[in-house]
Simulated assay, not measured.
Amino acid sequence: MTDDRDPSLLRLDHFLPYRLSVASNAVSGRIARTYRKRHNLKVTEWRLIAILAETPRLTPQMLTRKTRMDKINVSRAAKALIERGLVSASPNGEDGRSHFLSLTEAGRALYGAVAPEALAMEQLLLSTFTEEERAQFAALLRRIEAAAED
């Protein structure tokens, strides 16, 4: 039998990495169901579309760094988006082994349709938070990300 008050014991319900992972999976799962049903998109594919909408010309390596996703997941998502005509690949003149990814017209149109839905989902998920709590939560997440970078 374990003593729940012993601070030296690892209890997942109180372990930050586990709690962040569970929360992230819950949010991603909720969003994924919506994107998959309405737009036949996986969460990884939507992330690439959203980033390419903000930064129009990136290599897969740059996308891997920006998303913090595994390079295999980025590669699979990019390939699927290229096959659907949502993303195009163009040669990288500085590195013959690499290429640049950009949204196509269809990709930009899809972004235009999904972005308002994503914002509405975010509003729904944060609807029980006050404005002050939302700002505090965002600041705390940035601090955790910064601490993890060190």
Rank of each mutant, 00 (worst) to 15 (best):
M1F: 13
P7H: 06
R11D: 01
R11Q: 12
L12C: 07
H14R: 15
F15R: 02
F15I: 05
L16Y: 04
R19P: 02
R19H: 02
R19K: 00
S21V: 03
S21A: 02
V22E: 13
S28K: 10
G29W: 02
T34V: 09
R36C: 01
K37L: 09
K37D: 02
H39W: 14
N40F: 14
L48P: 04
I49N: 08
I49K: 01
I49S: 01
A50R: 13
I51C: 07
L52R: 00
E54Y: 13
T55I: 13
T55M: 10
P56F: 09
P60T: 13
Q61G: 15
M62W: 09
L63K: 07
L63I: 06
L63A: 05
L63Q: 06
R65Q: 06
K66Q: 15
T67R: 09
R68V: 09
N73V: 06
N73M: 06
V74H: 08
R76D: 05
R76A: 08
A80C: 11
E83W: 12
R84V: 02
L86H: 09
V87R: 07
A89L: 03
A89G: 11
S90H: 03
P91L: 09
N92V: 03
G93H: 14
E94C: 08
D95I: 00
H99K: 13
F100I: 04
S102V: 14
T104S: 00
G112V: 07
A113N: 14
V114I: 05
A115F: 06
A115N: 12
P116N: 05
L124A: 14
L125H: 01
L126A: 15
S127D: 12
S127K: 10
T128V: 05
T130I: 12
T130Y: 06
E131H: 00
E132V: 11
A135D: 07
A139K: 03
R142F: 04
R143M: 13
I144C: 07
E145N: 14
E145W: 13
E149K: 06
